[in-house]
Amino acid sequence: MHSAFKPTGAIGGAAILAALSCAIGVIDLSLRPLTLNLSAPSVPVEPVPQPTPSPARPAPRPAAPTNTPPVEPTAPADQLTRPSPAGHPRGEGFVTLEQARSLHQSGTASFIDARNPDEYASGSIPGAINMPPDAFLGGKIPDALFAISRDLPIVVYCGGGDCDASILVALKIRELGWKTAVVFEQGITGWKAAGLPVTGGGAP
């Protein structure tokens, strides 16, 4: 006569192991809570001047493809110094295309490209340093980070809307003390779509 629940059977054993794994997982999560979203930077980023002609969106360059979708700003320019609008899908700590462009033109911000080296080599924002999440594996701090001022804005980007690597890198470098890190959510895709300059890569 077989009992209904047999630990050495596939279903009984799987149920025991699954229950145990989930229970330990929940306990581990409560002991090591995860931060997955960016808050506003604890050190306010320098206010960004509004572009003088104040077009609603950047005019694409003649070379840009005509069927490129327009790039909508995701938040007002002063978002970094006050809470982001309600309903922002990613919370605070993000800069718009306009802000990223202003910071880049002012030359006061550092740009970090969080994509893989081969993607970085295929075209990046001029002056951007390549620093993918893997550069931090094993608690390592990339040497290039020490060349970046902790007081000036740091703009982290990756491929665009579908990538989260920029958020992960921004979270990591904030924890390491570079608290002015913000994320340019539209990434290289939004940058290129706006007809802004791109280089073939190479650290400054």
Binding site: P7, T8, G12, G13, A14, A15, S21, C22
Partner: peptide, 21 residues
């Protein structure tokens, strides 16, 4: 944790079929 416990179970030969499933 599931991978770790199933790995341990396989090494020990404990709840083997469940771990394999």
């Amino acid at each position: 944790w599931t991978e770790l416990l199933c790995g341990l179970a396989l090494i020990l030969g404990l709840l083997t079929r469940g771990a394999a499933a």
